[in-house]
Write a protein that binds this DNA or RNA. Structure first.
Lengths: 347, 347
DNA sequence: TTGTAGGCGTTATCAG
DNA sequence: CTGATAACGCCTACAA
């Protein structure tokens, strides 16, 4: 009570309060509890409780040489795609009493690089990068370099949906899902399509686009119209508006490379007096929660996003173990047809 | 090159590589750059770059006695309400080069307590608790106790939407917003209401409920029917289904205490063949992004969630400064009437 | 079972 | 301007 008012209590304080040495206090609170006399152990615990002691994680980290931290990089927390992944990572981390620190790489690659750098300073057990702009091991790819440094220093890296980098990756079957979606839409009677894509640097978008084209190929349908826009709800809205302005007599259905874009597009259509599902089919990708709450309910490709996050964690953790550890996993996707592609256009 | 293959390079390695002392290396990389000869400085920087050195944040934390970490506690990342707040916190933190660590307190108060405890071990500059189950300073409130410990040790606590605890708080004008919503709905011609609430332990729900009742009071309308359910989309769905089953001849409009519940309710209505906006009015609270994408667009009360998060950060940071620092802030809310309460019921 | 002492990677103090 | 050296809070042989 006679020292400074603030600055949290240390192990020394607890030891003094309990009348034992720091070593004993340390052992009683963390090390193998077996080796300390139970009376002392409870004295220490009592002292800790009384003082409101909480071990300094940084001190433990440096003393032990390792942390219980998982670093997660996402592009945007507010995007349901990423928050679902984040939720999965969080849940899996919790099971192992790991702490997840989350960084948001809004847009700029520089920012992204800076983030991974900082993260590296945290000495996390694992770094998980979800949907960033890691594009290929091309020259000047400072990000990959940074991750390589981290891995060399004993860190574990897991990427989500960035299969072309030399790190364990949780992959999503974007291509296959989009291909099956194309098939399903053909089956529903649609023949003439527009595709709403994001810029090709965003690999997820590119894969879905390519998969969709692949599904169409050889079926004698015309080459789809392609409208490039942002990977966001606003992007989708804007693209649909452009489509309406241009005139869409030659388009029966629109495939947006993700659900938020598709939902934005549906709203744009409605705002322009075009009825989605009736006047034009709309399909998305991801099957986010709100896909069933829009009208008409959105046809989409379901992606187990939470599972992907959880899987990434497990993948990272399993790398400790003997060589047998698998180094990547692909999450399956499946088409969910709903009313937004229900009404088959008249021939 | 002759030591173990992994374990990241330390400042010693950099110093050796650059041919200077650790002290100099430290100064060149972090301390006031002015006091080191520019030639040495660049040698050090070069060595650091070559080795891929990254300062050990934990070591810095313990040496400096402080961290650059902000801890954020939310109930669920995947809920747009919390992810919007998180986004705001993240943005504000970024401006001060602070790192956000995010913990998810899914449900159980024990888990929540454990989280704050662990967080305390991180020695963050700030702990922000958003929408947890802190209910009142009643006896046995271990969470408040934990936060008090933290604050005593010099930490800054900011709560979002928990005004009855003795910590700086960013408050949301739930009561006022709900009251004005009630007035607006009365103005639109609705007279007989049902309220979809969450259990009263969730203070946000309680406030909105009470505000709504207050807005109705003295207007000669019947006491609303109250349906208690979960604070989630599923809760809303379920409650609406119950309402339909029960029969809703005496209800013209439904007020759900948040948007995800309202959206769930709308879907339930539709599934039961009841047309929201026409057969029954629906209003929510929060004005989340998807409120404009559902059909009919959802009447709601807009809450500046991102701003609330950012504000919480600033509030925390300003507590450093001289006594004049404000200790709380209230975020305004405003009613947004849309088509879900557009069609005025026949008298 | 317990205490002493050295070390983890940085920063900060204090002589050179 | 630079280099030893003592902290920082904790863990862990090693010795008692």
């Amino acid at each position: 009570m006679h020292d400074g008012p603030n600055s949290p209590p240390t192990l020394h304080d607890v030891a003094r309060e309990a009348g034992v040495s720091v070593a004993t206090a340390s052992r009683a609170l963390n090390g193998s509890t077996r080796n300390v006399r139970s009376e002392n152990a409870s004295r220490v615990r009592a002292a800790a409780a009384k003082l409101g002691y909480q071990p300094h994680l940084s001190a433990q980290a440096i003393a032990r040489g390792s942390t219980r931290t998982v670093a997660l990089v996402v592009r945007d927390v507010a995007d349901p795609y990423f928050s679902a992944i984040a939720a999965g990572v969080g849940r899996a981390a919790e099971a192992d009493r790991l702490i997840v620190t989350m960084a948001v790489a809004e847009g700029s690659p520089e920012r992204e690089l800076e983030i991974v750098r900082t993260l590296r300073g945290q000495r996390p057990r694992v770094i998980i990068v979800a949907g960033s702009r890691v594009d290929g091991a091309g020259t000047g790819d400072a990000l990959a370099e940074e991750l390589r440094h981290y891995r060399t220093a004993g860190g574990r890296v897991v990427l989500i949906s960035q299969p072309d980098l030399p790190f364990p990756t949780v992959t999503i079957d974007n291509r296959g899902g989009a291909e099956r979606l194309a098939t399903a839409l053909l089956g529903a009677g649609y023949r003439r399509f527009a595709v709403l894509t994001a810029p090709p640097e965003i690999r997820t978008s590119r894969e879905r686009h390519e998969g969709f084209l692949a599904g169409l190929r050889g079926c004698g349908v015309p080459e789809p119209l392609v409208i490039e826009t942002g990977f966001t709800r606003e992007g989708g809205y804007e693209a649909a508006r452009r489509l309406v302005t241009r005139g869409f007599e030659d388009v029966e259905a629109v495939f947006a490379v993700n659900d938020v874009m598709a939902i934005g597009a549906m709203t744009a259509f409605r705002d322009a007096g075009v009825v989605p599902g009736a006047d034009i089919g709309v399909a998305g990708f991801d099957d986010i929660a709100s896909a069933v709450d829009v009208v008409p309910a959105l046809t989409s490709v379901a992606v187990p996003l939470r599972e992907a996050g959880a899987r990434a964690m497990r993948l990272a953790l399993s790398q400790d173990e003997t060589a047998g550890a698998e180094s990547s996993a692909e999450m399956p996707t499946h088409v969910v047809l709903r009313d937004s592609t229900h009404v088959r256009p008249a021939p």
